[in-house]
Design a protein around this nucleic acid. Structure first.
Lengths: 167, 167
DNA sequence: ACGATATGAATGAACG
DNA sequence: CGTTCATTCATATCGT
């Protein structure tokens, strides 16, 4: 993947000429429009950031929860093999990071994230954030919900016919 | 399923804290990650909508056929009131490639109308410009040879529509 | 076995 | 830029 290569090389938001150029390169493989390239970078950057962001906010949750409750139950048995699919582009955080990556991205990311952190809570926004709960959550069944520690989130607790089991 | 219960109760796109909670509760039944919950809601919502949509369109078909003959101007087609202009052109159902393996990235069968032009426009800068370009381009038939070199002849002459879905 | 279905995961496109 | 939607992919399950 050429695009990922570029991304890794530090390209984040290519400008029009760059996009054109990239598009030209890629068009060898199929019909590709500048728009596609643009979207690709948008999405990739956004999702990379989400991951990053999530990781942090979750980390906070962990820390917080670690602060002290006797985790009532729900012990961790995560030896279960998670679904292993194909790996596509999960590279983001594991070791082989070129340093430039960190420089550029971390700086940016942290900037944004700092707010969240200072908020005292994960004032992070909607669900995408949650989407970021990613992997580690499995190792953290015992956590401390932000505040609302109840079974039902916002809405009414309508009727119930619990079928339990399954998630 | 607990999740369905919630869905029925009105939870559609839970935000981060909510997802955290849910995940926590569900983790009692097994290892569950936040992202699983997120995905579940995404998928469930999408599929509900899909079912509904399909139902409607079919209903329309039935109504139409019940009319006995083609009422010329009855192009109702669903489109309830979605303010979404999605134009995916088919790309057909026959996906020629496994998608994940030879993913030379980039192009996935898409064809839209955009030319990404660098024109004499003021290059405001970076992507914003490119972004704006997205919309315009659709209506903008004029394309410019990228002055920024094109290493590859994207096919400088005339259009050509390749459908090679690569990816 | 094989097709149909259900579901998790990912990604392109677009909105606000 | 973050979020959301629609579509697609891959796999697991089930019925025949």
């Amino acid at each position: 993947m050429i695009l990922e290569e570029m991304y890794r090389s530090g390209v984040r938001t290519p400008d029009a000429p760059q996009i054109q150029q990239i598009t030209a390169h890629l068009s060898c493989y199929g019909n590709i429009e500048g728009k596609n390239v643009f979207y690709w970078f948008q999405n990739h950057k956004a999702r990379e950031r989400q991951k990053l962001r999530r990781r942090l906010s979750m980390h906070h949750l962990l820390l917080r929860s670690a602060a002290g409750f006797s985790t009532p139950n729900c012990h961790v048995f995560f030896h279960g093999h998670h679904h292993h699919h194909h790996h596509h582009l999960s590279t983001a955080s594991t070791s082989p990071l070129p340093h430039h990556f960190f420089n550029q991205d971390a700086a940016q990311g942290l900037n944004l994230l700092c707010k969240l952190e200072t908020k005292g809570e994960e004032l992070t926004n909607s669900s995408a954030e949650a989407y970021g709960c990613l992997h580690q959550c499995t190792t953290n069944p015992s956590f401390n919900p932000p505040k609302t520690l109840d079974l039902f989130p916002t809405k009414s607790s309508g009727g119930f016919k619990d079928k339990s089991t399954d998630r």
